[in-house]
Design a protein around this nucleic acid. Structure first.
Lengths: 332, 332
DNA sequence: ATCCATTTTGCAACCGGTTGCAAAATCAAG
DNA sequence: CTTGATTTTGCAACCGGTTGCAAAATGGAT
């Protein structure tokens, strides 16, 4: 079907090596030869087979992009940035959607079969062990939005979720709220656990403020809304730190139905600063996660690892900050 | 680095062909041989190199997934469904993000270099010519969410946008609105054009109803909001058909700020029926687009084409229907 | 044990490229 | 016009698999 190297070589009346060399930069070819070959290639509509060449070079320029967050709108932006960033560098993302059924071993095997040069795990809910499996298989891996650890086993790029939890707690205390609550995402997610830990550790220093917590079933609008509706029936707090903006928006919707005023009766602070948080109808006070920087850094790290696979694992942590909007009352 | 066929063959004391055969189903291998080989493979941790085998078999099981809709939240669901559907069938999506800068020829060349078995173009804004370029290059292609045509040049799976436009117009007329408007997405998008055409053709039959139109700069919340704010300053209509739910939500936000009541003072109908349309705080009346069915059908068509590349181009059109919620007043 | 049909196995060529090495060509200097 | 250094080119082996073909092994019937 497709035109091959050999055909171009024959048409141009040169050796196959000559053709190969004109298409690999850095190879030694005279100007005359290059012109001859390019002409023939042009006429035949030849373009080299990247996979065949990968056999000898050992590089496919394929990067596995593994995620399980296909429901949080923020990940559309994540995919956008990843695909652009990778293709700008001549790399191709091979997408893997990790559903509940697919076990880690399968995805590792699958990506190895396709000889990806590296893997980016983009998820805030997977444990470090997942990314580790790739490293153990000898595949360069970066876990973005992953759990930060002092002694990282794999490269991690993200934020300090524990610190974010503390930051949220401090902010709520500052504003004079007296009954605060953590409303997290799924309990199994490392991001939920860490935000919980940080939140609680900071609140421990404020025994005068009543602190409670609960978890939504997923990082989704509906889960946040349902959990808030449930909480409203028992003992509602006067301020909530939600583990994710999308939960916050669900919470706001439930509060609106209940007739409670935000931020007068109850305050809400989220995490992520997704685009929707800026919408006038939502106007959510939240903790900004620098997604763009995280992704740029992840890609840079990945590219560096391609040349230096045994690079010592490092954690790159980006600072977050509170974005003041309308769902928290001002500091007194 | 990775274990190869040859090493397994040596360890098992058999020929390379024998090993190859145990890993390709349908090949003739005795039970005894298979056990011997599998044992050796197991011990060495061998797994076949899919790309090497693609060289001889001519199949990579790679499917290019090309899109330029990385901003409409609905596409997160689209990617979710596509990736799951493809990987359930043993196919791997190679994602291509078509930005304004990347020209079509480049993406065609790129996907050919990776010898993808087929390409799915998932976009409601690209002209049929884009998908056609793949067909011309001999790559099986299905354009999902593409423009429907009576004599399709490529396989198309989607909805009849013209009919949707008519449906929206009929619905607004039925409810007794007297000054209706079409608020479309980017004018260059085929989906916008078709919805416009349908809307206007139906309204032509109702000269008593004043009809106007305008276009937002993108299929986004902010673009919809801005356009509505602009319209509010001049001569607002009493009902709007928005070319997409995400526009509708922007429009609702602008209306809310203006103090106008929905649906009493002004009605809004969208298109897509995205998850957010169901949120109580939004409660958008809209035209449902059967995304799940479109994607399932696209994948089935793609799989069929892998066996029969010259299959005659067909258009698969799924019916849409109005979902009654709270942004349109009831029929009198 | 012999013969023939059927299955299993290995050989070797091939898929579409790359690359080390040595021969051929080019170039500048003598 | 030599000579020697330097660049360009082609040969042939290789990357990790697959597959047509013929030889070897197996099995059943006589």
């Amino acid at each position: 079907m497709a035109v091959t190297l050999k055909e171009v070589a024959e048409k141009a009346g040169v050796s196959r090596s000559a053709v190969s060399r004109t298409f690999t930069d850095g190879a030694s070819v005279s100007e005359k030869m290059r012109r001859k070959v390019e002409k023939a290639a042009q006429e035949l509509g030849y373009s080299p087979n990247a996979l065949a060449s990968s056999l000898t070079t050992g590089r496919t320029k394929l990067i596995g992009l593994v995620s399980n967050n296909f429901h949080n709108p923020i990940f559309l932006q994540v995919f956008d940035l990843f695909t652009r960033g990778l293709q700008d560098r001549g790399l191709r993302p091979l997408l893997v959607n990790l559903t509940d059924e697919t076990d880690p071993a399968t995805s590792v095997r699958m990506l190895r079969q396709y000889s990806v040069d590296g893997v980016v795990v983009a998820s805030s809910t997977l444990p470090p062990g997942f990314a580790k499996a790739f490293r153990d298989a000898g595949v360069p891996v970066v876990h973005s939005f992953g759990r930060y650890s002092a002694a990282p086993q794999v490269h991690v790029v993200g934020i300090d979720n524990v610190e974010c939890g503390r930051m949220a707690a401090r902010t709520l205390v500052e504003r004079g709220y007296k009954k605060v609550a953590f409303l997290g995402g799924p309990e199994s997610a490392t991001s939920t656990q860490d935000r919980y830990t940080g939140f609680m550790s900071e609140m421990a220093a404020h025994p005068d403020v009543k602190t409670t917590y609960s978890f939504a079933k997923a990082y989704s609008f509906e889960a946040g809304r349902q959990e808030m509706l449930r909480l409203l029936k028992s003992a509602p707090a006067d301020a909530y730190f939600c583990g994710d903006d999308v939960l916050s928006i669900g919470v706001l919707s439930a509060l609106q139905d209940s007739g409670l005023q935000v931020p007068e009766d109850v305050g809400v602070i989220g995490l992520n600063d997704m685009e929707m948080a800026r919408w006038e109808s939502i106007d959510l006070t939240t903790i900004h996660q620098p997604i763009r920087q995280i992704i740029t850094s992840t890609i840079e790290l990945m590219v560096a690892m391609l040349d230096e696979p045994d690079r010592y694992p490092e954690a790159r942590i980006f600072p977050c900050s509170v974005v003041e909007r309308g769902t928290l009352r001002p500091a007194p």
